[in-house]
Design a binder for these strands. Structure first.
Length: 420
RNA sequence: GGAGAGUUGGCUGAGUGGUCGAAAGCGCGUCCCUGCUAAGGACGUAAGCCUUUACGGGCUUCGAGGGUUCGAAUCCCUCACUCUCCGCCA
């Protein structure tokens, strides 16, 4: 959500932003409704002022005749007022519906483009492994090692279901624990957050209404979040923080659920795209300054890169183009990791900032040192997501005999150097 | 699942039809005093929206939404959440 005053004064900016994001949004229609809203509001408020005044008189006067005359007069006014209020209510609904659809403005540095094929490579890290044999896919590797079971996954869980077993399960725990320790060492507050969430958090973070189709819902009307960002951002919903508490940095862990509604037949096999996975997410709240947002955005992106480097996984960092940005995102980087069997880089991390887009919706504010209230800025970035990262790990570290070398930093958690 | 009690400002907490945007305390801010520290005193201190060049003016908000009334924090209804007890489960 953006400030209506800002929208009014920067109509062209909003239009340009929407165009860049390839989001169809009619700013003029919103401003039109806004004008009607303000006119009606003035009318209604004037009538209420009259009513308040008369009401006060009624309370004070001792004269029965004046009293009754005023009460009669107010009875008439009330009917008119109710009619106007009804009109206002309708306009307000329309206004609010339009307001939550206003896209945040992408940063100047965001490249033009329609979809992920237009994303811009920023840097590349690591050597792609060269194999003296034909590398196997993670599916083959893991099934041969008996560390994953897709058949029974589908039997028990349905399409895209999976079991991780033996060293596959251990490897997941190792990765989580390793990354968590690194984050805590950097001052992030560890949290295990709910996945089952109420509507508010999803509306606030911007996953609803646009992305509703990709969310699972239960019979109570609650949702299964696709990321720990939702619950973590909801944590301070409606609250006022102190300036000295900022920035708040969270390392949030949660199961994540995605219906993958729009992804038809993509990645139907293996661990790349599943309905249920786990993620450690960096979530940051900071003071309302663009510079601070940018600084922290670079920082959490670097953190993610650092984990990848220490795991020895070749990746590239891409800057997402306008068309690949969500409604609220100002700028986003993706880390794409080398997948030997596909001979391509696949997205494993995503890092973005929102300015006050989310905090306005969630009403998360802070008091600055002068006592003034501001909406915080928010950011988030993947720290590590399993099982997707396992795909990269096992494929890049595979040996000719089908065994998998355990990356140096994970050995102490796995208690072994090799999965065989 | 059953019974009961709650939801008030940054926080704690009074307030059962007009004098309540709301006592008191904490916190915070400015100033004073105390030559440091501890402590003390005075005053101020909710947010959002509309309007205004400005000064200011107006409206809304006491969990949410409806209702009664000229008038609702206060009465009625619905819902959400919190707490306590019982049950159930672990």
């Amino acid at each position: 959500m953006l400030d209506i005053k800002f929208i009014r004064e920067n109509k062209e900016l909003i239009k340009g932003g929407a165009r860049k994001k390839h989001i169809d949004f009619n700013v003029d229609a919103l401003l039109d409704v806004d004008e009607k809203r303000r006119a009606l509001l003035a009318e209604v408020e004037g009538m209420r002022a009259k009513q308040n005044e008369a009401t006060e008189q009624i309370g004070k006067t001792a004269d029965q005749a004046t009293r009754e005359a005023l009460i009669a007069e107010m009875g008439v006014l009330k009917k008119e007022l109710q009619k106007k209020e009804e009109e206002l209510k309708k306009i307000m609904q329309k206004w609010q519906q339009l307001m939550i659809g206003v896209p945040n403005i992408p940063d100047m540095s965001v490249p033009e483009g329609k979809d992920d094929s237009d994303n811009k490579e920023i840097r590349m890290w690591g050597e792609k492994p060269s194999f003296s044999f034909t590398p196997k896919s993670h599916i083959e590797l893991m099934q041969d090692l008996d560390i994953v079971d897709f058949e029974r996954g589908a039997k028990v869980s349905g399409f895209r279901g999976y079991f991780l077993k033996n060293d596959g399960a251990l490897l997941s725990f190792a990765v989580w624990q390793y990354v968590l320790e690194r984050l805590v060492g950097k001052g992030f507050q560890p949290m295990i957050v709910p996945s089952l969430v109420r509507k508010e958090g999803l509306l606030g973070t911007g996953y609803i209404p646009q992305g509703e189709d990709d969310l699972y819902k239960n019979q109570d009307g609650d949702y299964f979040a696709g990321t720990a960002e939702v619950a973590t951002m909801g944590y301070y919903m409606g609250e006022v923080l102190g300036a000295s508490e900022l920035p708040k940095k969270f390392a949030s862990f949660s199961p994540c659920f995605r219906r993958e509604a729009g992804s038809h037949g993509k990645d139907t096999k293996g661990l790349i795209r599943v309905h249920e996975f786990f993620k450690l997410e960096q979530v940051v709240l900071c003071e309302a300054s663009h510079e601070e947002s940018v600084r922290l955005h670079e920082e959490i992106t670097k953190n993610a890169e650092e984990f990848m480097q220490s795991l020895g996984l070749p990746y590239r960092l891409v800057l997402n183009c306008g068309g690949d940005l969500g409604l609220g995102q100002v700028k986003k980087y993706d880390i794409e990791t080398w997948i030997p069997s596909e001979e391509t880089y696949r997205e494993t991390h995503s890092s973005s900032y929102f300015h006050d887009f989310q905090s306005r919706r969630l009403n998360i504010r802070y008091r600055d040192n002068g006592g003034k209230l501001h909406f915080v800025h928010s950011l988030n970035s993947t720290a590590i997501a399993t099982p997707r990262i396992l795909v990269a790990l096992v494929e890049n570290y595979q040996k000719e005999d089908g065994s998998i070398e355990v990356p140096e930093v994970l050995r102490k958690y796995m208690g072994k150097e090799k999965i065989s």
